[in-house]
Design a binder for these strands. Sequence first.
DNA 1: ATAAACTTTCAGTAATTATTGAAAGTTTAG
DNA 2: CTAAACTTTCAATAATTACTGAAAGTTTAT
Lengths: 167, 167
Amino acid sequence: MQYQEAKEKFISTWGSLGTLWGINKAMAQIQALLFISTKPLSMEEIMEELKISRGNTSMNLRQLMDWGIVTKEIVRGERKEFFTTEKDVQELARIVAKERSRREIKPVIKVLEDVSSIKDDGTQKTKELIKQTKALKDLTDDLDTLMNKLVNQKQNWLTKSVFKLMK
Amino acid sequence: MQYQEAKEKFISTWGSLGTLWGINKAMAQIQALLFISTKPLSMEEIMEELKISRGNTSMNLRQLMDWGIVTKEIVRGERKEFFTTEKDVQELARIVAKERSRREIKPVIKVLEDVSSIKDDGTQKTKELIKQTKALKDLTDDLDTLMNKLVNQKQNWLTKSVFKLMK
DNA sequence: ATAAACTTTCAGTAATTATTGAAAGTTTAG
DNA sequence: CTAAACTTTCAATAATTACTGAAAGTTTAT
């Protein structure tokens, strides 16, 4: 496999994986492109590489910036804007985990809390609803906490020690 | 909040959360319904509760069974089939984590491996592609391993000890 | 102030994904 | 074997989500 093929394979795989971490295809592909680029890219270059429209590129770059994954670069002497992505995978994972926790997991925990704290009217079905949603809430909470703690270790010695512990 | 409202809120929240764990809305809602039900439900009952068609119910139940989350129950004297879901959240998490690892994460790791092992032709851009996809592969691998190990502890004493360690 | 260079917005359209419902298939009781 | 009771399949359609492109908006240089 040569450079061009490998690059395309990486970008398209990462793109279709986007759904897994909760973003759309174009967004993931732009991030992938920037991630392996040796220099900041302009909107023009991104459109050209990925064969997507100006509007699409603009909207998805904006979202990536909202996530804190991509940043604008000012290049001296150039009028147009250039973009780069966080290059450190650990830091990237940290950002993604934090954002997903905030945007998706926390709100769900809130709902589970509300639902599991309805008044017990003594019926079987109410007891079951409370018991099960409570269990789900506890699990979700635990996993969320663990994920955040894990990913917040800027150095990876702790990750390593956890691995050791679990082996 | 009363039972009916709480139940509906739980089912619809869990349904829209489906995308987060990689399944569709109807599938997640069926699972949610079974999860808080005090007894196995027939296809008829599921259709009725969720207001979805027979075909949709059938197809999504099949998928839930493929995932290993839902099982058929034979009820003595009844001709139709009844369905139940795994009721233990820890076990549920174990199944989901295992399946997602197998279906989605492992294949991505494979691609990252392939891409990161192309021949280094000495150019800057090839070096960057190799370096970055390698880093991504290592991270993905670590997270996958960790997730599987975590979730495979049938007892939760280990989860607890990990928490303690990280606090 | 003007105009060129660039970015954003958003209504319309395309692509994708989910759902229906009726026909075909299967199982069981008699 | 037959028919009733039930489930599955799948082509058609609906709903959702993503994408385009051109017009409107913004910034910068002169």
